[in-house]
Design a protein around this nucleic acid. Structure first.
Lengths: 155, 155
DNA sequence: TATTGTTATACTCTATAACTATA
DNA sequence: TATAGTTATAGAGTATAACAATA
C-alpha cells in the first residue's frame, strides 16, 4: 500500500503476536462486564475484591490485604474507608498490636458480598459461554503461569 | 477459622474462579515487563501501540486510530502530540478533506519502531518461556474469543 | 530501628461535554 | 447537519515519599 492511499482497513499484524495486546483487549471486555455486574451492588472491581478477601479472611490486616491484592498500602486506605463508611466492614483491633487493624465483614457486608459473588459468577459464565470447560481451565492455567513468571526488571 | 485468630495465609478461593481476577493479575505482570522493555525507547504501552499502528498503516486518520485502539478520540491527541514532538510521526494532510490528518511515520520513527518491536518480541518470548507453543496459541485463541463475546451491558 | 496505617502528591489511563473548522 | 480534531475536565488506578503511633 502506498502512503498516499486512504486507509480503509487498519492492520494490527505487528501487534497480534503480542500477548499483552490480546490481554489488554480481552481484559477490557471482561472488566466492562464486571463493572456492569457490580453496579447494582455499588461496588467496583477493587471494592469487590477487597470485600471478598475480607469476608474470606476475617481479621486480615491492611498490609496483608494490600500484599494479597498486589497494590500499595496507601491506595488501600480509601477503599477501606469507603467500605467501612457503608458499614460493610469494620476496622477492628488486632490483639497485642495497637498499630494494626483487624478487618472484618459486618453481617450486612457478608450478605451483600455473597449476593455479589453469585451475580458475578453468573455473569461471567454468560460472558464465557463461547468457551468450553477445557478451554476455560487451560486459559486459567496459562494466566497463572504468566503470573508466576518473573518479569524482566531490567530493559 | 475463627474471626479472632490472626490471619497467617490469605485465601483467595472465592476469587480464583473468576477469569477477571486472573486476567488482571497476569496482565499486570505482562505490563510491568512491557513498560520495562519500552523504557529504553522512551515509549509506553500506548505510545508504542500508536507508533506501530501508524507505521503499519501510513495515512491513518486519528479517528480510525482511536477506533482501532479502542480509546476515545480526545485521549489520542496528546499521544499523537508526544510522538510528533519527538519527530517519530507527522500529521500530514489528507487530500480532499482538510478536517483530517494523515498520520505517517518519519524515517527515524520507523527505525525506532522496528527496534522496539524486536525488543518487545524478545522480552515477551522470555516472559512466556514457561508456556509451550500450543499453550501460547490456545491462550491467544481464548483471549480473542473473549474479546469477541458481547459483554452484558445491563446488570 | 522497623512496621502499620496514613497523608499528600503525581502520573497514567479513561470518559464526557463542548468547541472550531471543515464537509 | 454531521464529522475530525481539539480543549477542558473529572474520575479511576497506581506509585512514592514522608509522617505519627507503636513495636
Amino acid at each position: 500500500m502506498s502512503a498516499t492511499d486512504a486507509v480503509t482497513h487498519v492492520s494490527d499484524a505487528s501487534l497480534r503476536k503480542l500477548i499483552g495486546y490480546h490481554m489488554k483487549r480481552a481484559f477490557n471486555v471482561v472488566q466492562v462486564d464486571l463493572v456492569q455486574t457490580l453496579k447494582p451492588f455499588d461496588l467496583r472491581m477493587l471494592t469487590y475484591t477487597t470485600l471478598v478477601l475480607i469476608k474470606d479472611n476475617p481479621g486480615l490486616r491492611q498490609s496483608q490485604l494490600a500484599d494479597a491484592m498486589d497494590i500499595e498500602r496507601p491506595n488501600l486506605v480509601k477503599i477501606i474507608d469507603e467500605l467501612e463508611g457503608r458499614s460493610l466492614i469494620i476496622r477492628d483491633r488486632v490483639p497485642n498490636d495497637r498499630r494494626a487493624y483487624a478487618l472484618k465483614p459486618t453481617p450486612q457486608g457478608e450478605i451483600l458480598c455473597n449476593k455479589a459473588i453469585k451475580s458475578v459468577e453468573q455473569h461471567e459464565d454468560q460472558l464465557l459461554a463461547g468457551l468450553d470447560e477445557s478451554t476455560r481451565s487451560s486459559l486459567i492455567t496459562a494466566l497463572q503461569l504468566i503470573q508466576k513468571s518473573e518479569p524482566n526488571r531490567t530493559p
